[in-house]
């Protein structure tokens, strides 16, 4: 990745919300790179800042009460410095987004085919007829059966899995270089989830896109990703190639998360290694490591001083911890 410019490079991104309770540091200094043709999972629990991070990259934030700092470079161009008009041209055409809830992201009073066609016509100068033809092809490519009939249906006539396929078709409509999928399968059942993840992976490979997959599910992150970045309290606390993260997690939070999940391979009634306490409040987080109060390895320094994110030499593995699992390496 060092020899070519990354598709997406986020540097020192901060997104703070001003609320009556104080400043919520939802994204607190996040930097990462994503090469084209790769999948990066952003893994975190609710409140970890993963969704705000995705929205912040897209510039989809409320108009007031928010401060954003840092840069978001897409193919070298800084999206964070672009005006709303310019950003609108980019969204959908260069970077597309798939949201968690397909029911609320689709317009309930327009037919499916028209909504996909509109997305195309928004960014490409094509006739209505051509847009219709392209949307039918797209809907077919995302696995919608009986396309001609389905294209004339309304969102409520489709199942959750089918609606998410429509969302993916819309996201792919203008051949984006990068897709941000924010919990794309959380509202779906396991069999539909499996179908959608398979579809996303296949389309990503076929179109050589970058995919940023935001999820809370370690299982979803483990399959079909190249790298995982773990977020906690608005920061990336560990990032590594997927296999390495599962084989040799350094950050105690990552380790604890992996151990707290019931595994299909464990016998029934296996005692789970629960993480005590709960995720921290992002208002006034204090100077130390945000995970320290719940961490089994924490020591005096952890409460005083936040550990920096350092890279293990010669690897793509970085973590933020004073007392990493298995010692320094």
């Amino acid at each position: 990745m060092t020899d070519q410019a990354p598709l997406l490079k986020v540097v020192g991104l901060k997104t703070f919300f001003h609320t009556p309770r104080g400043i919520v540091r939802a994204v607190d200094g996040v930097s990462f790179e994503l090469a084209g043709d790769r999948t990066l999972a952003i893994l975190g629990e609710s409140g970890s800042g993963k969704t705000v991070l995705a929205r912040s990259i897209m510039g989809l934030l409320p108009r007031s009460g928010v401060t954003r700092q840092g840069s978001v470079l897409y193919k070298g161009e800084n999206l964070a410095e672009m005006g709303e008009r310019e950003l609108r041209r980019r969204r959908g055409a260069d970077i597309a987004m798939v949201f968690q809830d397909p029911m609320t992201s689709l317009n309930p009073v327009h037919r499916i085919g028209r909504q996909v066609g509109e997305t195309i016509r928004l960014h490409r100068r094509v006739s209505r007829g051509e847009a219709r033809r392209r949307s039918v092809t797209l809907l077919r490519s995302v696995g919608i059966p009986d396309v001609e009939r389905r294209a004339r249906q309304y969102p409520h006539q489709l199942s959750g899995g089918m609606r998410q396929r429509v969302m993916i078709a819309m996201a792919l409509a203008c051949d984006p270089g990068l897709v941000l999928a924010d919990e794309p399968t959380t509202a779906l059942d396991v069999t539909a989830q499996d179908q959608i993840l398979t579809l996303l992976a296949a389309q990503r490979a076929r179109r050589s896109m970058g995919l940023l997959l935001v999820t809370h599910d370690l299982g979803v992150a483990a399959g079909r990703t190249d790298e995982i970045a773990v977020m906690y309290a608005g920061r990336i606390v560990e990032q590594a190639p997927t296999e390495r993260l599962f084989a040799a997690a350094k950050m105690p939070y990552t380790e604890a998360l992996m151990k707290s999940i019931p595994k299909l391979s464990d016998p029934p009634h296996t005692r789970l290694a629960a993480i005590p306490g709960r995720p921290p409040d992002l208002v006034d987080p204090g100077p130390g490591c945000a995970f320290a109060p719940r961490c089994r390895y924490s020591a005096a320094r952890c409460a005083r001083e936040a550990p920096p994110l350092r890279t293990i030499p010669g690897t793509r593995h970085r973590y933020a911890c004073w007392h990493p699992v298995g010692g320094e390496s």
Binding site: V190, T191, Q193, D194, Q195, L197, T198, A201, A202, A205, D217, L218, G219, V220, A221, A222, G223, R224, T242, E243, F246, M258, I261, K263, L264
Partner: peptide
Amino acid sequence: AVPVPDPAARPAESDP
């Protein structure tokens, strides 16, 4: 269909 938190178990290009 259950996503298993183990990258070795991933079905690389498999069908659903």
